[in-house]
Design a protein around this nucleic acid. Sequence first.
DNA 1: GTGAAAGCGCTAACAT
DNA 2: ATGTTAGCGCTTTCAC
Lengths: 349, 349
Amino acid sequence: MNEEKHIPTVFDIAREAGVSRGTVDRVLHKRGRFSAETAGKVLDAVRKLGYTANQNAALLASRREWTIACLLPSFREGEYWELIHRGLDEGIPEGSNLRLLPYNYDQTDPASFQAQCRAILEDKPSGVILNSVFKDGVRTFAAELDKAAIPYSFLDNKVDGLGNVFYVGIDPYRSGELGAFLLTVKTAPEEIGLIRLIRDCSHLGDPNEPRRKGFLDYLTAHFPGIKVHTTFINPSLPEEATRILEEFSAAHPTVRHYATTNSRIFLAAPFLKAHPDFTAVGFDDLERNLQALREGCVDFLVTHRIQEQARLCVSLFADFLLRGAKPEPRNHYVHLDILHALNADSYIE
Amino acid sequence: MNEEKHIPTVFDIAREAGVSRGTVDRVLHKRGRFSAETAGKVLDAVRKLGYTANQNAALLASRREWTIACLLPSFREGEYWELIHRGLDEGIPEGSNLRLLPYNYDQTDPASFQAQCRAILEDKPSGVILNSVFKDGVRTFAAELDKAAIPYSFLDNKVDGLGNVFYVGIDPYRSGELGAFLLTVKTAPEEIGLIRLIRDCSHLGDPNEPRRKGFLDYLTAHFPGIKVHTTFINPSLPEEATRILEEFSAAHPTVRHYATTNSRIFLAAPFLKAHPDFTAVGFDDLERNLQALREGCVDFLVTHRIQEQARLCVSLFADFLLRGAKPEPRNHYVHLDILHALNADSYIE
DNA sequence: GTGAAAGCGCTAACAT
DNA sequence: ATGTTAGCGCTTTCAC
């Protein structure tokens, strides 16, 4: 049974179609300078022989450069977006001439976002990966990218109805529902303490609004008449946060269920540590959140493979750019993971 | 800022070390026929210039063939090992001359296992991926592989203390603990119904023994005095299973918590459907298990990325074989996922 | 609009 | 023990 199937090469296609290798290449890459007739012959030959390019050879020979501009929030160590950036780098296909160009903006400063948008339009990258903090700004920018014929994809969160190639990230509404379920799985609550960040008040709504909606919808659907009390803390002042939460708790002694819908439940860890009988749920596997989970301050974390999500995004985008592979489906919802002290250890590979 | 760093090639190494490219290649691949002195010079040059081989070129030029024998249980559609085989194929690095050779054996028949072992030793593959159902058989086979200098790795489950390169899979004991936690998170039980398969009785213990131990240890640690009742069903006779479970339930009306520690909780789905107030937990995301979860028969599934685990195993093994990359750590424990109706939809990408 | 040919960086067979 | 060289399959320039 010596199969040894001969794998067809450009040469075979050329022979089959009665043209030269150069012509085959031009047709396959739509580089122009060929007649419709030859194109037909080449494509027929490709189908007939079942030809697929050898990517090793292609990548080796190609000297073309690709760039993807990454328009994402700037960050400090240990923050959410650091994981994203690590994942982005991992997504670059080995041996590809693809470079990522970071264009980081300040999440609290719309002007910095605008400035980076302008910079990207000037630099004309092959593609753009972005998220959405300033919805209107994103809409304007997307229109300009459309005009410049630069493809773009959303990562981690999105604005619907635009011309993006795809979206990779969670379904935020469902993550909120799941968080609410986990918060109430052990004991049914009558009141809930929802911990929010003061920056949510400052500009046009909080980026976690869809998640919060899922969270609240679940609670009201399953526990009619439930009371949700909201308190705001400042992420820059951790000690103050503990004090504020203690005061809140003193004012609402019947609240025994706490949650955030942002990624900063760790800010409540000292407070929760002092109240071991409280139930608490948060989101995202920041190192400090995981620690709070291990120490028993937090019961569950709802998260997803943040790094892998970013890796996937770059990798899909690279396929799209380099090989013209259309990623399906347009919304690539990643899995929501439930983390508990019992399964948190092996989470990050 | 025109960086354009020149990426060092074999040629640069050769020049730096004052030898030819052929010599560099021989040293790098330990193909012999070079002096210790030149080897030193070459390795120094590699370090100095920070050389790493261009994999595209390497793969393109290499006509060498690699084979990995996969010694794993045979399976039918929709069973656990089907997912494994799918993942294995995905793990083959693109463009590599690596082939997987399946050597499937019958889990209920030690002789078929032995036969496949002999076949592998005759075929002399570059490496072996295997799991462990017949522990003694595996020990013997491992010794023979050691003698033949054929590297091997365990996938999905293992025997400790052998010369395998690595293991990829879950920590079964912890998966059992997690299952027990989830079974009891909502309501504290006084009695538990543990559903096992009759084949566990037939040969030398059941492959899920470590998981069952974790499961039982958790229960006795957290609920002293708990009673665990075991009942056996036959996976080949689904209707009978429902009848047996109904009889069991009639005999033990106070049991309201049910679990399996194998992957067949779906066999109990019709029974559980008739008792919507019972709590049930199972393992592994077989399609039929997921359906039971969606229908509310099962509350939680403990699982892991079965396919991804297999993919990872092949991919690590390929790196080890093709590029001599030592995978660390030796035990690659994959993450335990908690599946609930609220997060099951997006689980399989 | 098409064909010829020179690489891309590495491997491996063949000289020496 | 070491050097030389002909490819691997594709891209891309250049000449027609």
